[in-house]
Simulated scan of single mutants.
Amino acid sequence: MEERPRASTDLRRPSSLLDPAEVELLRRALGEWGGPARASDDLARAMGFADASSMLRECDVFEDALREDAPLSSRDWARVLVSTEIVFASDLYGSGTEWQTTTGRDDAETIRALRVVQRKLGSVLSGHYGGAALFVTE
């Protein structure tokens, strides 16, 4: 699936939104996909990806962007966040109860940090609540 062109005003660098520890949480969560976490094509589509294999590829791209402080579109930020939320919380698709084992991160600390990230990304994600504008139709 080819991504739509991004408007330059739509792009935000991780460092302009989040602290380094929060960026690292997102990177670590994205790394769980393709490891202990597995998404079906239907779940991947619900998260705004074309299918599970494209989700894995795009999560790798997002991980790199977060590490390199490269700008992401609001749509990409929404997909990073929903991917993190599901991989952390879901025992069926994500790491779930194995989160602490696979990441070395405490569940209670993770949920507190995730809530901070959700609040900080709120203004960037305002057009995506309820899944709005996550999907590209071609």
Rank of each mutant, 00 (worst) to 15 (best):
L25K: 04
W99N: 02
A46C: 13
F49C: 01
D10F: 00
R28K: 12
G122S: 10
F135I: 15
L72F: 00
L56E: 08
T102K: 03
D76N: 14
P20W: 03
G34W: 03
A7E: 15
D60W: 01
A29C: 09
L17Y: 04
R105I: 12
A50C: 05
R6H: 11
G131T: 07
E2D: 13
R115S: 14
Y93H: 11
E85G: 11
F62P: 01
M47K: 08
E109T: 15
F88W: 12
A132V: 13
S74N: 00
E68R: 02
G35M: 12
G48S: 04
E22V: 02
R38G: 12
R112H: 07
A133Y: 14
S16G: 09
A113G: 15
V124S: 03
W33F: 05
S73R: 06
D107I: 13
T103I: 00
D51I: 02
A113L: 12
R67Y: 08
V87L: 09
P20K: 00
D107K: 10
L56P: 05
G122D: 08
G104R: 02
A44L: 04
E63V: 14
R105E: 10
T84G: 07
S95Q: 07
G48K: 01
D107E: 12
T137C: 09
T84N: 06
R115I: 09
S123Y: 11
L26R: 03
R27V: 03
L92S: 15
E68L: 10
L114W: 05
R57P: 01
A78H: 08
Y93V: 10
V23A: 06
L56Q: 14
D10E: 10
A108L: 13
A39W: 07
T102V: 15
I86K: 08
R75E: 12
I86E: 13
G122W: 00
G34E: 13
A21Q: 10
A108H: 09
